[in-house]
Simulated scan of single mutants.
Amino acid sequence: MTYPHTQSYFVSYLVLAMLLLMAPACTGRSSDQPKADLTGEYRIVGGERNGVPIDQNELDNASIYISDTTIIAYDKERKEMFAATYTLDTKQTPWHITMISTKSPDVGAIAKGLIKAEQEKVKLVYALPNGQPPTEFKAGQEQQMFDMVKAGQASG
């Protein structure tokens, strides 16, 4: 004896399973691709410019806000120092980032770099104007790098 509702349950489960399997394709993300969630407020705990450490006084109380599409940096007086839209290529390791400045006088300037996120920490290195995109997490000539932690987290 066959139960008519059993077949409809089977079809429902089959449709649900197909939808779950298709979801990564519909969002443009592959299921094995790392999730690129960098959103949040960060504080800078270290940095390099042109291969030399940045004076900690310059970094103290500076903050970075990252949304799904923008990065904005503020100095200790809460003055906007840098603003850009960004895109990530998470198919490569480390991830590649392309930032396009939205702040005058550098509107439209493109900075390419590398970014990695580990738990509550983010490391970002990128080329300054006229610099070559970095190939490692060390700021070379015409490059800048920042070590950041999510606001409220220990810097260790």
Rank of each mutant, 00 (worst) to 15 (best):
T90F: 04
P133I: 01
M148N: 04
Q141T: 14
K112F: 00
V107S: 03
D89M: 04
L14A: 12
A17H: 02
V45H: 02
E80D: 06
E118K: 15
I64K: 01
I115H: 00
T135Y: 05
D89Y: 03
Y9P: 03
T85S: 08
R29L: 09
I97L: 05
R78C: 07
E48Y: 11
Y86P: 07
E41S: 11
L59W: 06
N50T: 10
L59Y: 15
D68A: 13
A84D: 00
K35T: 07
A84R: 00
T85E: 09
S8C: 03
G108F: 09
M145Q: 10
S31G: 09
A117M: 06
S67I: 09
L59V: 11
A73E: 11
K116L: 08
D60T: 15
Y42C: 12
P133W: 03
P129H: 12
L20D: 03
K91P: 01
G152Q: 06
T90S: 07
F82D: 02
P34W: 06
T102F: 02
T85Y: 03
K150R: 13
D37I: 03
Q7F: 13
E118R: 15
Q119F: 03
A25I: 12
H96A: 14
I71N: 07
K76S: 15
I72D: 12
G40E: 02
Q92G: 01
N61A: 05
L14N: 14
I72Y: 00
Q143H: 10
I115D: 02
T70Y: 00
E136Y: 01
G46M: 09
Y126A: 08
K103W: 00
G140T: 05
L114D: 03
S12P: 02
Q153W: 12
V45F: 05
E120L: 05
I72P: 02
F146L: 05
K76P: 08
E136F: 02
V45D: 10
H96R: 11
L88V: 10
K79I: 14
M1F: 09
G156L: 08
I71F: 05
A84W: 01
Q7A: 06
P53I: 10
